[in-house]
């Protein structure tokens, strides 16, 4: 329990400390209970080492994504949530398009939230597993560094995996 500078605004409810997370992409701010935010190891380390001011700036994560992250943390900070509830809630959070999922996995990685990282990675894998490799290349923004001949050779090694794919 670090007795960090008390926020006068919350002086009326001293037992419930809050932190403000601010997306540096679009300056959106989120006020969250400290114990919710502390599920992020990155934020916990900042708070523990007294590096956290009243407002914690979160670079490279948009407000839209930060809202999802906070929703996840809130769910998992609720001690009365059953395993089943959490599973359902997690499934709802990752029921997003692939680009949102990639933003989300990057956010989970940056904020170091293991559970969210796991569930998002799994959802991404599920979403791409039946796609042609050309689509995957585009989704991940990966440059094709094969020559056509090289690609054909790599493909030929596992011809069977390309059945029904372009």
């Amino acid at each position: 329990m670090a007795s960090a500078p008390e926020n006068e605004k919350n002086a009326s409810a001293p037992e419930k400390k809050t932190l403000t997370l601010k997306s540096m992409i679009n300056n959106e701010e989120f006020v969250v209970d400290e114990h919710v935010a502390l599920q992020s190891v990155t934020i916990k380390n900042m708070v523990d080492s007294d590096c956290a001011g009243d407002v914690i700036p979160v670079p490279t994560i948009s407000g839209e994504i930060l809202a999802l992250v906070i929703e996840y943390c809130k769910n998992h900070a609720n001690p009365s949530a059953s395993e089943d509830d959490l599973k359902k809630a997690d499934a709802g959070i990752v029921a997003k398009d692939i680009y949102t999922l990639i933003d989300l996995v990057l956010a989970a990685n940056f904020l170091d939230i293991k559970g969210l990282l796991e569930v998002t990675s799994q959802k991404i894998a599920d979403s791409i597993k039946d796609l042609p490799h050309q689509d995957v290349r585009e989704i991940f923004g990966v440059e094709n560094d094969y020559t056509p001949e090289e690609e054909a050779a790599v493909r030929a090694e596992h011809d069977w995996a390309f059945e029904g794919f372009p």
Binding site: H133, R137, Y146, A161, F165
Partner: peptide, 11 residues
């Protein structure tokens, strides 16, 4: 199967 296909994504 997906893994084998995605070897073609990039080196």
């Amino acid at each position: 199967k997906s893994l084998a296909r995605f070897r073609c994504v990039c080196k």
